[in-house]
Design a protein around this nucleic acid. Sequence first.
DNA 1: GTATAATCTTAACAATGTTAAGATTGGAGG
DNA 2: CCTCCAATCTTAACATTGTTAAGATTATAC
Lengths: 194, 194
Amino acid sequence: MGNKLYHHGDLRNSLIEAGIELINQEGVKRFSLRKVSALCGVSQAAPYSHFQSKEDLLKAMQDYVTEQFMADLERSIQSYTNQNDPGVLVQMGKSYVMFFINHPHYFHFLFSQPCMTVNLSIEGDAAENFQPFELLRTTALRVFEKDKLSKEIIEDTIIALWATVHGLASIATMKNVHYDKDWETKIEDIIWNK
Amino acid sequence: MGNKLYHHGDLRNSLIEAGIELINQEGVKRFSLRKVSALCGVSQAAPYSHFQSKEDLLKAMQDYVTEQFMADLERSIQSYTNQNDPGVLVQMGKSYVMFFINHPHYFHFLFSQPCMTVNLSIEGDAAENFQPFELLRTTALRVFEKDKLSKEIIEDTIIALWATVHGLASIATMKNVHYDKDWETKIEDIIWNK
DNA sequence: GTATAATCTTAACAATGTTAAGATTGGAGG
DNA sequence: CCTCCAATCTTAACATTGTTAAGATTATAC
């Protein structure tokens, strides 16, 4: 009765988004299921209708962000005319930075929390790695295929490209650094001059 | 009265060592002050006579291992005749691996727990880095000084050397890989052939 | 030998993850 | 429209945890 519904309607996503906010404000250390429940105006045990455990919610939070990020990057790549042209890397790099300019809280959530496991290894099992990094890597490998470069140089170039783009995202999402319409051209310039 | 002493005698170190054992067996997630206290045959609040908090004990556990490791490495370096000879790096590498062959549980404690913060960056703040890594780095810089190599090549060589040595330690401390008297010569060969 | 500081114990508190049992509700099938 | 069922949510409770307070015990300095 009234405006208080027994059924929340979209509790699963609300818990995920409130969880990200909570971690950004208090850190993963002070994150708790009960606090997230309270933020969603819901009882302490409500999350257990959607998640098996606290760890399960945390994993879902990571997947939630990563999936949006991946969808954005894949859309960006496929919208480019020539998939083998180096320009596709610049296009992807722009999207990489832009995604976090549009969602700065996602950047802090993913990369500023020591226990949010984001694997970034070249040699290790690719399947366990941060998916956006692997997407950048396979895209770059396709672009560089025709160039007959040594494996080492290619891998180093990929790391350099990723570092540039990730660094830009890190700077752009810092507090007091505001979005500027010149950012897009800024990003293009920096990546091209690599 | 009897053999049960009111004063433990060496509780601080016992807590640290029992804590390392507990983390190796159950993981940092299931580590708790009360369990460590029980393992030491002491009441739940006893740790607070030696540590301010759980975090404080965890930090002390890391420092405890790192200090022993550093002392070992420094002794190894200083025992070598010529501090500028490349051989000092081999000597140090041998000690690096040997330390963890002699203390395999320290390796797992330091490197297999996601929340044990071990920084290993080249560009970042050196003071925040894993001290043994910085020691290897400064030693290598001294050895390579006369060679007039580019900074990039030197840094890459340092990474390669560290990776070799650390990888050997990782393999050597795996279960079912037992210490063998040939390990020392094995290590020498692998590092020299780099 | 006594005062004092260090060390340890017991007891309690609030916060947390998790489960059990039951209430409420939306929607499918009659 | 009505009924039944599964999904969703609530309340209540439990064990575990970090931490503090108050006091007991012991080592050590004087």
